[in-house]
Simulated scan of single mutants.
Amino acid sequence: MIDFTKLDYLKSGNERQKRAYEVLQKYQVFEKLKSYSPVLAGTIPLEIDIEGSDLDIICEVDLEFREDFLDDISFSRLIPSDVDVKVENVIINEEKSIVLNFMLEEFPIEIFGQNRSPVQQNAYRHMMAEYRILQEKGEDFKHRIIELKRQGIKTEPAFGLLMELKNPYEDLLKF
């Protein structure tokens, strides 16, 4: 079982995972976000990413202090000054969230923050369910997921199609 709360597994992964590790280390992303308990989620950890897939970093952020979080990121120089950053305040499942999108080298980066531990956030819970399903169903299933993603279908709906789930975002949380 992989410990997805640490980045070490990327060092022995596929080429894209190794490259993601290099970029995250070079910019000290997790070190600079340490006080927000960052976790890499999404498709790259599961090796079901496609070209253009982003590095999804989920964090615990007390949104009452949203400005402090943005200042921390700015002052830590996590994001180089010449990089455009899109910041959105959104409500997801009735919970305030913050989303930052920007590029670091060839990787689109998304930092997602909610006022809860990353391992309790749906992005992590979905990833863990998808990991278990991929382990159980094998390489052919994995390749079918990737092919659906290449056709423009998002990850959870791709799992939903192959597993005949009515509401994949909710149903995956039951695994």
Rank of each mutant, 00 (worst) to 15 (best):
L165Q: 08
F30L: 09
Q114E: 12
Q17N: 13
K149L: 11
S12K: 04
G152R: 07
F69Q: 08
D62K: 07
K11G: 07
Y124P: 05
G160H: 04
N14F: 00
L7R: 02
R66Q: 15
R144G: 15
F102V: 02
P168H: 03
L70P: 08
N93K: 14
M103A: 08
S35F: 04
S97R: 08
D8L: 06
Y21T: 00
K149G: 09
K149H: 04
T5A: 07
L172G: 07
E64K: 07
A129L: 06
D68K: 12
E64A: 10
V61M: 10
I57C: 05
E164R: 01
E105F: 00
E94P: 02
K142D: 04
A20R: 04
T5W: 01
K18V: 03
E67R: 06
I98R: 02
D71Y: 08
L7Y: 01
T5N: 07
T155W: 04
V85S: 13
A129R: 03
N93D: 15
L55S: 06
I109P: 01
G13C: 08
Y9S: 11
G13E: 01
V83N: 02
E139Y: 03
E156P: 03
E130I: 06
L172K: 05
E170R: 11
V87S: 06
K142R: 15
M1R: 06
Q114N: 02
I57Q: 02
F75N: 15
S74K: 13
M1N: 13
S37Y: 12
Q151S: 15
L165C: 12
Q114M: 15
Y169T: 12
V85M: 08
L100Y: 02
E106T: 05
M127W: 09
I2K: 07
M163F: 01
S117I: 06
K26W: 04
D8R: 02
D49I: 03
N14E: 10
V119D: 09
E110H: 01
R77H: 14
G42F: 01
D56K: 00
E156Y: 00
E170P: 05
L46V: 01
E105Q: 09
L46I: 00
E22G: 03
S12H: 05
D84Y: 03
M1S: 15
L172Y: 08
P80W: 07
E67P: 02
A129K: 02
L70M: 05
A20I: 02
K149C: 10
F141C: 04
L10K: 00
F75D: 14
F175P: 03
E60R: 08
E95I: 09
Q114Y: 05
G160D: 05
M127C: 11
E147L: 11
T5G: 09
C59V: 12
D8A: 09
Y131L: 02
Q135Y: 00
E15D: 15
